[in-house]
Computed example of a mutant assay.
Amino acid sequence: MGMFSRFTDIINANLNSMLDKAEDPEKMIKLIIQEMEETLVEVRSTAAKHIAEKKTLSRQIKSIEKNIANWQDKAQTALAKEREDLAKSALVEKHKCQTQLDALMSELTELEEFLASVQNDGQNLQNKLAEAKRRQDAYLLRQQSAQVRLKVREKAAVYNIEDAINKFERYQQKIDEVEAQVEAYDMTSNQDLTSQINALEADEAIDKELAEMKKQVVNG
């Protein structure tokens, strides 16, 4: 047994309320449509069965109507021949047929009313099914729209990330250039300091050599 226990449950169902309360509306509407379609098949099968019964009843009614007319003719013929006994017997048979006809006509009336009800219910079910399918289409459109929006945002996020990376790389490049300039300056400064120190050491060596030469001259 599905979510609907009776045919009238579907007809009287408030789809909006059911879907609003559902944890998964898309799954719920799919199940509702499936059950409605199955119920519609049952309704059509029931209608086809009773239409066949109506045709059978109609044939039986026509046959009995012919019998009634036939017994009426026989009664009139017997009465014309002054056979009142036979005429009476023929009328008895006619009334039997009439009783059968009345019962069949009553059954036919009930059957026609039932078929009219089935047709009306079937139309209501078709309307409900169409309503449910419209809701399903609406959910599908919402899902597709959400997927499109998600892709756009994902692309925007990727673009923002790439842009941030590019900016960082540009900043890093600038920092590298500044650091390179500092290193070059330090390198140059170190070279100048070294040259000065080397020059002082060279001067000191010359002064020592000159002092030795003076001592030799004096002592000589």
Rank of each mutant, 00 (worst) to 15 (best):
I161R: 14
D85V: 09
N160T: 04
E162I: 02
V158C: 06
A156R: 13
R135I: 09
S145T: 09
K94F: 15
L140D: 08
Y171L: 06
D121V: 03
Q147E: 10
L91G: 00
E113T: 02
A157Y: 15
Q123G: 09
L108F: 03
A157G: 04
Y139V: 03
V152G: 05
E112K: 15
N160K: 09
D163P: 01
Q172C: 00
V152Q: 05
S106N: 09
A132G: 03
K151E: 11
Y139E: 07
Q126I: 15
R170V: 01
Q136K: 12
V158F: 10
Q119L: 08
I161S: 14
F114N: 00
V92E: 03
E84G: 03
L150A: 04
D176R: 14
Y139L: 09
E177S: 09
R134F: 13
Q119H: 14
L101W: 08
I175E: 09
Q144V: 10
E162G: 10
A156M: 15
H95N: 07
C97T: 00
E154T: 02
R153G: 00
T109L: 04
L140P: 01
Q136G: 02
G122R: 01
A132L: 03
D85I: 02
E169C: 00
N127K: 11
N127Q: 11
K133Q: 10
E169M: 11
K133N: 05
Q147M: 14
D176S: 09
H95F: 12
A130T: 08
E179S: 11
K128W: 08
E179I: 07
S117M: 14
Y171H: 05
L108N: 02
V178P: 00
C97Y: 02
Q98C: 12
K94I: 06
L104K: 03
V148L: 14
D163G: 06
A146P: 02
L104S: 02
E112D: 07
Q147R: 01
S117Q: 15
K155T: 07
M105Q: 06
A164G: 08
R142D: 13
S89D: 02
D163Y: 08
N120K: 12
Q136C: 09
L104V: 01
K151L: 09
V148T: 08
L86E: 05
Q172M: 04
Q144M: 15
K128M: 12
K167D: 04
R83H: 11
N160F: 09
E162L: 15
Y171G: 03
N124R: 05
D163H: 07
I175D: 11
Q143A: 13
K155A: 08
Q173Y: 14
A164L: 10
R153P: 00
R149D: 06
E110C: 03
K88R: 11
Y171N: 06
L86G: 01
N120D: 15
I165F: 12
D163T: 04
A164D: 13
E169H: 10
S89Y: 05
D85K: 08
T109Y: 12
V118G: 01
R134C: 09
A87E: 06
S145V: 01
L141A: 05
